[in-house]
Simulated assay, not measured.
Amino acid sequence: MTGRHWRWVWMACALLTALPAAATTLIVEAALDQDIFEPVLRAFQQANADIQIDYRDRSTIDVEQRARASDDPPDVVISSAMPWQVALSNDGLAQPLTTPEAQQWPQWAKWRNEVFGFTFEPIVIAYRLELAAAMPPPSTHRDLLDILTHYRQQLDGKVVSYSPYSSGIGDMLFQQDARYTPRMWDLVAAMGAANTDFRGTTRSMLEGLTAGRYWLGYNLLGSYALVWAQRHPEIIVQVPNDYSLVMMRTALIHRNARHVDAARRFVNFLLSKEGQFVMAGETPLFSVRPDVIGPYTAQRLRDEVGDHLYPIPVDATLLAFVDPLRRQSFLKRWNRELKILRQPAD
């Protein structure tokens, strides 16, 4: 090869080296509103310029179905439906993360180093100011049962909660309620008598409260409700004073992830001090780490609410909630207490 040819080869190699490397596209299936989560996504991309995120914001049911589909698997799966996430891991659809952050993550917030709870979100009651003018606003589950019983006509059609049919988080919360209060089925019966509407998302419940269709919402995600109430002063958010469930968004790396390195970096960022700092300061998702300071941290929530927070642990007990026979039995009683013969529509 002549010197001239070598010169052309050298120039071609130099041009190829100068071209920016093609960014990896990380596919994230998530039951987490993108506008809430955007500060975290932005911070991750600023620290990882070689990764682009294809963020697919869906319902808990859609996320679970897509995680189980054999074609086009996601890299990372995020959901508030904690039992379904643990079930995905138990069925072999997750892979472990073994970074120092993962190894040191609290045991109550992870499962097999595969499913990681990275937020700490209270479950709340929300109501309109009109309700407070017409009746004592509820601050406990007993209060809620009392007003549904004694003010049933005024509340007829004006109460909303999650549907255990169309929402994985809704199903989990009502089943958790059954663990913590012996009056849960009385409460469900009272909701049925008041012609309660059942929806698939906290957002749709909040929109209905703002529009005046509802006066009272039960078992809403506090992370969404607290931010909503800041912009809509007609809505009051109450963390129940007897017990308040706390759920965690969980993240896992899919077994068939096509971009494993990017997926590991992303989930590790959610657990890192940097990622948790963004969650505590720029989102209402409440960080888990005790070494993070900000307006939305688990420790600050505990300081404000007291000792009646009941975090739902990420452990094997969650698998019972997705057992087909148990779920069938739960929904059968749900329908009997509500006195409905068909599946509630979202």
Rank of each mutant, 00 (worst) to 15 (best):
R152A: 03
P136S: 14
L144D: 01
A134K: 02
I147W: 07
L148R: 02
P136E: 08
A134S: 15
L129T: 15
E130T: 08
K158C: 07
L155A: 11
A133V: 08
R142A: 07
M135P: 01
L144F: 02
K158M: 13
D146F: 09
T140N: 05
Q154C: 04
Q153L: 14
L148K: 00
L145N: 02
M135Y: 09
E130S: 03
E130W: 00
Q154T: 02
R142H: 11
A126H: 06
Y127R: 02
H150M: 08
A134Y: 01
L131G: 10
L144S: 03
Y127K: 03
D143S: 03
L145A: 10
A133S: 12
L144E: 00
L148V: 04
I147L: 15
D146N: 14
A132C: 09
R142I: 04
L131Q: 14
Y127A: 00
L144H: 05
D156A: 12
H150L: 15
I125Y: 04
V159K: 03
S139A: 12
Q154A: 14
P138G: 11
D156C: 10
K158G: 05
P138S: 14
V159M: 11
D146I: 04
A126Q: 06
H150F: 12
A132P: 04
L155C: 08
Q154I: 05
T149D: 07
P138Y: 03
D143M: 07
A134E: 06
L145K: 09
A132E: 07
K158E: 10
V159R: 04
A134Q: 11
H141F: 13
T149Y: 02
A132D: 14
A126M: 04
K158H: 12
Y127E: 00
D156I: 05
